[in-house]
């Protein structure tokens, strides 16, 4: 799920940036540092939408670096158990398949794939129904449900299922290509 929230961070700025464009430099560095990171608490920071407030800088003794407390607004993405996501399959093997929904990696084990889909090995391993109408392979798009999340300090990993109503392949690149 996506959230728009206000976050805080202490930014350290090198003395060489002190000058007329100090603020721009600070914001650019914030974006470079924060976007794409993951915190267990808030999830993935997708984008910074604005800077609310930059506090008074504090010069650190010895180094000359200055620490600014920065308040900023950001879009974050955090997967939840029970959430339905659309994801792209990245890898298929006999144990199941991996998919990505933006920055989040999701594993769907073969028990959570409908029983009528069989694993087919080969140079393009895939899961196919007996009549061949539905095929899950690399770059397929699937709709899946998250049944478990593992949230570490800097990483989020999910277990998903497509064994439910309205879940499964939503387009098949193999058919169009």
């Amino acid at each position: 799920m996506f959230f728009h929230i206000t976050l805080e961070r202490n930014m350290q700025l090198h003395p060489r940036h002190f000058g007329p464009h100090l603020r721009d430099k600070l914001v650019a560095k914030l974006m470079k540092d924060v976007e794409g990171t993951c915190s267990g608490r808030h999830g993935f920071v997708v984008a910074i939408t604005g800077v609310e407030d930059i506090g008074k800088g504090l010069i650190r003794e010895g180094t000359g670096f200055v620490t600014f407390p920065v308040k900023y607004q950001a879009v974050v993405f955090r997967p939840f158990k029970g959430e339905i996501l659309e994801a792209v399959v990245t890898m298929v093997n006999k144990m199941g398949f991996f998919a990505e929904a933006g920055p989040v990696q999701i594993f769907v084990s073969n028990h959570l794939i409908p029983d009528d889909m069989e694993f087919q090995s080969g140079d393009m391993p895939n899961y196919t129904t007996s009549d061949g109408s539905v095929k899950i392979q690399k770059d397929s798009e699937v709709r899946l449900k998250i049944i478990g999340t593992r949230v570490d300090a800097t990483e989020i990993f999910c277990i998903g299922t497509i064994k439910d109503d309205f879940l499964g392949v939503i387009n098949d690149p193999g058919a169009t290509a």
Binding site: G96, F107, L112, I147, G148, F157, I159, T161, K163, D164
Partner: peptide
């Protein structure tokens, strides 16, 4: 019906016998 269960994996080596959950597969 195999729904909402986190798959577990086990090491077949009897001397090891470690268990892993699907969260560790990465």
């Amino acid at each position: 019906d195999n729904r909402n269960t986190i798959q577990e994996y086990i090491c077949p080596n009897s001397s090891c016998g470690r268990r892993y959950s699907a969260f560790d597969v990465l």
